[in-house]
Design a protein around this nucleic acid. Structure first.
Lengths: 318, 318
DNA sequence: GTGAAAGCGCTAACAC
DNA sequence: GTGTTAGCGCTTTCAC
């Protein structure tokens, strides 16, 4: 069986409480005792039982990050940045996926796993914030994404409308007139990522006095590489002419780049393209992919700042 | 405060034990009672406290995956595949990174969180297996990677030597004579990824009766995009001629592709390139990146099969 | 079919 | 500076 704190205590000839004090760095332990206890910990290979600690102390030192998918560069890079910050404060980041489905996100939360965390960061793609609120999450929580609306949670939003507007304006300024909105939505009243970025696209057109051909607004089945490529191929096959692409995410932009190459089109001579998210890969593609940076560095800082504040309030700060 | 099982029990007019039986699907509950309890659970928004369950029952339904970095496509895609399989068996996958700072803390304490898992999958890149063994991980554990050597853990290895040999042979067969080994090691006696892939590179040269110019074996500082690019640029600046690149990972291959473009070299006319890992991006680059598939699909299956066996032995299977 | 008792491993609060 | 007591929320065991 696993080594328990009481085993260490017996070996060191002290009480479990003293072992606990040593592990948690409490000052009221004599140096000599501390060393003896540490030696026994090392010798027996003791590790604290986090579950027990949490049950008693109400904190684990773990921060949860819940994302739709584990294999999307944007989330991987966000996770990496957050992990840096989280570790700087002596905690650990643990990543889980929801699978982008609303049920998935609900299951993730309702399974109670989030209660093991001192704090939770949830990327709310495809989930209703009100769903989240009904779950009565008890841990300090920060939402990340584009969904707005009334909410009792802190919410870090990126400026999707503004970013999409900048991207589209850039393309219009360089002479593009028929800009594909790859991953867009026809109805753009929602507060989801697609609707918001579509809104920025339309706004830029309006400002420039340019008309939007609805055939250029093309949804994608999924925000992955195959969808980006196939959607562009289908558009070309349908005979819709275009001279630029604004892709709602860099990943579908990468898929589109492959599709354009398959069509024998040169980027940027025949077709210009701009993405969104500013993932690290953009700088390394040939040719480079221009992308909108939604403020990735600042986002991570902001998230952790808000979370820390909530954790202090809740008394689970380290 | 959070809703406890006893709160639900009181509301439903039963004992906590009955609530527990309902939640865990035990048969000995009358349908009527079950419905009443479920209604109360829903109404109060009750969620089980995983820590308490684990403390008592010894299982959480969570599988941990420990990787070196969260923002590497290979690990993201591995995690995604594993998550599919894990969820199929009614559990959840949780991802953590080890990062570079293995030395920093008391490993014994910092890895204590692994004890909350029913099973753990550890990607042992840059970590000594003997380090791992000293941690006396008690949960069923499967190691993934190229490190071999004696170990008490199940270990899923990819054929790094064979894969690297195939890649190099392919380049030699198409006429390449000066193949850069990007990310290689000069001393290749170790069992780490770099040494093993370097061995395959040398083996292919030997078989083909071709000599290896040691100046073509170039280590990288880190297996990320910037390193791939910079290393190729430095090699060119040093005036070392080459006509092909075998990159030890697809990510540094992508970095190298950018570097080659910066040098005004055309792929594959001037320089051929082959990567390793077969990440999803390869198929979508322009031109496509040829890559060695270390058997990604099969790897995930194998890992989960081994883990399941260990979990059944340990009595933590669902 | 349901419930009472016990205790998983830890730490907060307080005694000594 | 160290130990004692109590109990976090749940489930195992066994009684009814």
């Amino acid at each position: 069986m696993a080594v328990r704190m009481s085993d260490v205590a017996r070996a060191a000839g002290v009480s479990p409480m003293t072992v606990s004090n040593v592990i948690n760095g409490h000052p009221n332990v004599r140096a000599e005792t501390r060393l003896r206890v540490l030696a026994c910990i090392a010798e027996l290979g003791y590790q604290v039982n986090l579950a027990a600690r949490y049950l008693r102390a109400g904190k684990t030192g773990a921060i949860g990050l819940v994302v739709p998918e584990l294999d999307r560069p944007y989330f991987g890079q966000l996770a990496s940045r957050l992990a840096d910050g989280v570790e700087r404060s002596g905690r650990h980041l643990m990543l889980e996926r929801t699978g982008a489905s609303r049920e998935g996100e609900l299951a993730a939360v309702s399974l109670g796993r989030l209660r093991m965390y001192d704090g939770v960061i949830v990327s709310v793609v495809g989930m209703n914030v009100s769903d989240l609120e009904q779950l009565s999450i008890t841990a300090p929580t920060v939402l990340v994404g584009e969904r707005a609306g009334p909410s009792s949670f802190d919410h870090v939003m990126m400026d999707s409308v503004g970013g999409a507007e900048v991207a589209t304006r850039h393309l219009l300024a360089t002479g593009a007139r028929r800009i594909v909105l790859l991953g867009g939505r026809h109805s753009h009243r929602g507060v989801d990522m697609q609707s918001l970025r579509t809104r920025g696209y339309r706004k830029a057109h309006e400002t420039a006095g340019a008309a939007v051909d609805e055939r250029l607004v093309v949804p994608v089945e999924s925000f992955d590489l195959p969808s980006g490529r196939e959607t562009i191929l289908q558009l070309a096959e349908a005979g819709v002419p275009f001279d630029a692409v604004f892709a709602l995410t860099d990943v579908i932009a990468m898929g589109a780049l492959r599709g354009l190459a398959d069509l024998g089109l040169d980027v940027p001579r025949d077709v210009q393209i701009v993405g969104f998210d500013d993932i690290a890969e953009c700088e390394y593609l040939v040719p480079r992919l221009t992308s909108v940076d939604p403020g990735n560095e600042a986002t991570a800082e902001t998230i952790l700042g808000l979370l820390e504040r909530r954790m202090v309030q809740k008394g689970v700060s380290i």
